[in-house]
Design a protein around this nucleic acid. Sequence first.
DNA 1: GAAGGCAAGTTTTTT
DNA 2: ACTTGCCTTC
Length: 821
Amino acid sequence: MTDARTPIIVGGDRGPQPSLGAGSPAAAGGPRADEDLLAGLNPPQREAVTYRGQALLIVAGAGSGKTSVLTRRVASLLRNKEAWPSQILAITFTNKAAGEMRERVEQLVGDSARGMWISTFHSACVRILRREAEQFGFTKSFTIYDSGDSRALIKRLVKDHEADAYGLTPAGTQGRISKLKNELADAESYARQANMSDPAERVFVDVFTDYQRELQRANAFDFDDLIGQTVYLFRAFPHVADVYRRRFRHILVDEYQDTNHAQYALIHELTRPPGSDAPPIASGGMMIFEPEPSAEDAASLTVVGDSDQSIYAFRGADIRNISEFERDYPGAKVVLLEQNYRSTQNILSAANAVISHNFDRKDKKLWTDVGAGEKIVGFTGYSQHDEAQFVADEVDTLRREGIDYSQMAVFYRTNSQSRALEEIFIRSAVPYKIMGGTKFYERAEIKDALAYLVAVSNPADEMAMRRIINKPRRGIGDVTIETISRYAQDEQITFRDALANSSALGVGPKIQAAIAHLDAVLAEATDLMLPASGELAPPTAVAEGLQLLLGRTGYTDALRASRDPQDEARVENLDELVAVAREFARNNPEGTVIDFLAEVALVSDADDLEDASGSVSLMTMHTAKGLEYDAVFVTGVEEDLIPHRISAGEPGGPQEERRLFYVGLTRARKRLYLSLAMTRAQFGEVSVAMPSRFLQEIPPELLHWRQSPGDVNSRGGTQSRALNARRPGGGSGFGTSASRYGDDLVPRSTSIEKFANRIPAKVRDNGDMQLAPGDRIRHDDFGEGRVDAVTGEGAKRIAHVRFDAVGPKKLLIKIAPIEKL
DNA sequence: GAAGGCAAGTTTTTT
DNA sequence: ACTTGCCTTC
């Protein structure tokens, strides 16, 4: 995030000039410096690495080695001295992908990789905006509002405008504003084409306008603004845009199919020839020699994508960005990568078959030469817990076959599905890691702590001030807050500065003292973290400042004094946040609290953890994009889940769901499992689930049903008929093994009675029950058994038990339903 | 201003 | 089923 080391190279001062231009020096003959970079690449991959021209589209199917191609392309540019690191801008989808790419380029070219910009759209824009914020009414210390922050602000505005009377909800309003911003519309441009005689439209425009005004007043950008305002900046200040157009000579964008219009526009701005829209006289134009702009001067653009993996249309991604690339960039070269190096042929054939049901797509067939591999395994559980138990058992089997936990992943459509899996995994002692879900940084205590940091680093941010002013309780309520706010407005100062004049507020002595104390602590923390005199804060300043704030304000003490057991965990979370700050200091010795906040705001689920080594990964199919595992479980393959019910009504919805399913399938290298449940509890009600239509799109010979939907509907009830009705005349499909056993056969190993409500809502806690090898125990479900061994530490101690009836099992001692005999 | 009780919405995916 | 937010009461 910090970038003091990398000076911008401006036009006219490009430093030593690497060989540039249309004729690739490498192609001109002679030994290539990058021959080893091409080792092991197939012909299209080579082409994608070596092609030199203004625009290149790499259509990279799943698992076709695009990351390899992209990194080698960058490495070869550097190696051949066609570009300096500082002239390269590579955009990836997540921070994690950016980190990996940097690492891989460094492996290829060593230290000369330094100075490249490899980051997400959002991070790159933050860097640009930090430098240029003062051009348009922001300061360098602006804060970034995440969706929660902007939701809170919108909520207040909706209330102020009594907009709920016109059917505006905070969530809906936020969604509309986000969509509009992704289209680069603002309140004014929207109002111009909206039907303003509709009062609901008028009030929406009012809320939108106020929202934007509040953001500006708070010196803050929301996620969408980071992109949109950068585009605005480039368009409004061509001389600023030219700085970056001259700097970045090679722009590479990964996952191009998931870019939205604003991101498209940003790339478009950056790839225009410098000077092309600067008025000749303006902005020192006479000082800098400006040659007649030509297409040759524009940065070269490489985009990589696969329209079959476009899964973010719901947040404004426009598939046309990739499908019309050749029109947008005339003369663009297109390279197709279709050979897959990841999955077995069976997995690919299934994926190909599914995705081919999407009409309106360019036909593309992945293939591999690694062989058919294992069949895909299907399983139908009676309930989501039954399904989860299957997954847990199978994970165990795979582990015994030698596949590491870290090489297995379980995918689901919605985050809420993770709960049942979690419960079963805990009981089966399968180590797991949930990627995403309820995020660390969304916890109340973490948001509070971060708000304290914002209060220090961006005094204009009144939202943050309001958040912390009475946490912990200081006796400052709504009335006092409004008094301070009014005082600040009257005096034309910020809310933060108003605290310094607590005596002028006309509040009671107790409250006045509380305000003065808060002001003093904030001032002290500011001195520590952002020393005024130009001296640099020590790297540890963020962590220390955070501890100072939480300690001196009594925040931690209040949690400790509480008798709510959850507050204990909150203290631990805060400790973890301090640890994160320390880690940040190690990685960014010159990073300030402002950089820290930006980094924290922009981390995503996929970035989250280090490799979760030794654990099975649980995540949504969206999060799974770009990842790969030896064994993959796609769970909840049911109608109304995948495809999700809500998508059914949206144009293009079912097709996007199919692409999402396709993404899930293609993550698997060797083993693929598809599972579903016949009943699923949601909203507290148990409802009957139907197998997903996507299952029927998989050729039956590729799929082995361990337990098919037909097996489970053995009584030939309405479900079974409903299923058959979906496939008139279709012989294959579900129930292959049902037909083998006949419709009336009772399912073998499982029954509804056995699995109904097996899982208690509350997990029990055995405390620190001591077990040793040789001890005998009794388990609620498994009966009596003997302990073979105990492994693990603390709350994660695991007993390896040989049960008399059911054989060996592993149990998490703390929560297993067991008693010592 | 705080605590406790009731109502409502929640579960589509995310930088 | 579960959480969150709003309202009442102290």
